[in-house]
Write a protein that binds this DNA or RNA. Sequence first.
DNA 1: CAGTGGTCTAGACCACTGG
DNA 2: CAGTGGTCTAGACCACTGC
Lengths: 261, 261
Amino acid sequence: MNPSLPTENSPTTNETPLAGSPAFSPLYQQIKVLVLQSLQQGEWKPGDPIPSEFELAARYKVSQGTVRKAIDELAKNHLLVRRQGKGTFVATHAEQQVQFRFLKLKPDVGDIASQGPAKRDIIDCRRLQASSELAQTLGLLTNDPVLQIRRVLSFGGTPTIFEEVWLPGQPFKGLTAERLRADTGPMYALFETEFGIRMVHAQERIRAVNPSLEQAHWLQVDASTPLLRVERLSFTYQETPMEWRIGVYRTDQHHYMNELN
Amino acid sequence: MNPSLPTENSPTTNETPLAGSPAFSPLYQQIKVLVLQSLQQGEWKPGDPIPSEFELAARYKVSQGTVRKAIDELAKNHLLVRRQGKGTFVATHAEQQVQFRFLKLKPDVGDIASQGPAKRDIIDCRRLQASSELAQTLGLLTNDPVLQIRRVLSFGGTPTIFEEVWLPGQPFKGLTAERLRADTGPMYALFETEFGIRMVHAQERIRAVNPSLEQAHWLQVDASTPLLRVERLSFTYQETPMEWRIGVYRTDQHHYMNELN
DNA sequence: CAGTGGTCTAGACCACTGG
DNA sequence: CAGTGGTCTAGACCACTGC
């Protein structure tokens, strides 16, 4: 009946081989996994349209309603974008509405656009070997090659964010400071267009700190100015960690905005 | 056909009286509004079961699937909780899984329970008149009565959070320091059981600051210790602002955790 | 066992887009 | 106009709960 599906679970009742073992996944969840695999394997690239609901229903041998439920959830997770009358598309960080989806720092007055475009200054981009901690965080081996990017973001002429970004060397082979400086858009958009890597989800840990000397220098503040220190671990499809980032944020004219639901 | 529904929109096509005016709302959205009204008016109280999907379908003269979609969305917003085989219930802040739903501060090691229960020390609870700013924030008039609560939260014996909470006087009439001290659970749970007011959603603005003398005193830190300053505006049903809170958090043994999606 | 929510299907029709 | 996603319905069956 569903030859292309990984597990068969239509008959009378779902087998529960071990007590407490789940061993049951609704069809639409299985469809989600299959779609995710196609996304991960690059069958559909960021910005591309995916097949219509009816085509997918035919491909997976399920009803259109089941495909719909799977896509609904992926769209709510911002992995796909639905456009009525046009189709369903692979989401991208380049879209205007979500330009700064992972940047929660907002100006105290006005919005992010009112101060003109952000100025992005790449300090450097170096090839390093992963420390054991970094390797563990990114799912690498100690001493595996990594890239470290350091940069300053300025809003309205004021340096506001200084951050260090670490990326696994393998998937980002060929990334250089020159390549980064040539680009004026969000870094995450460049990751998608140049390397086909889309950051899907991230978690941040935030503390209040005083800056190091280096941080104070780049942000033009003195050593007693309290700053937000934001650690971010970003994930691509399938919860694969792909980026580690430590930023310090000035909060004299900005604040970190968060919605609790 | 749908006599209990506010607007009729089944016929041939939806009227669009003015260009660009929406003037269309799917049935399930209208059901959502009706359910929200019942929640707001206290027809079903926090913890109560609401009628089954079929009962609601009969009441609103729509199909069960349409009710389902409405309830699905309310459940995803944490306004309702579905329990298979039992029914659908009005969500509450007292549930174990979501005890600290609005508190994003996590210990650096272990979880929130590993340090034993939080110690809640109420400093005072005073009746004040709303400043114009506060009145505007809470949707009151200047000089309307408000309550101000000040308290310290300690984890593992360390005072970690000092916060001031402002509540509108009217809905919280009768709240006193004694009443607050008598309760050992989350403040939001007390709001629900004693006043039938459920905080549904909130937004926070976060900065790094140095403490005031008073804040330094209550948190037992010196004046140069950087702290997180968290402003929180909480809303009850229908996006009605109901609480204004300013807290300062120590982040030497804790961090503010945030998921980006 | 009855009653609840959870999944899946099939089909009808609406709203939006673009050729 | 055809093709897409969006809504709504009706009905079947499964999974879980509690009596």
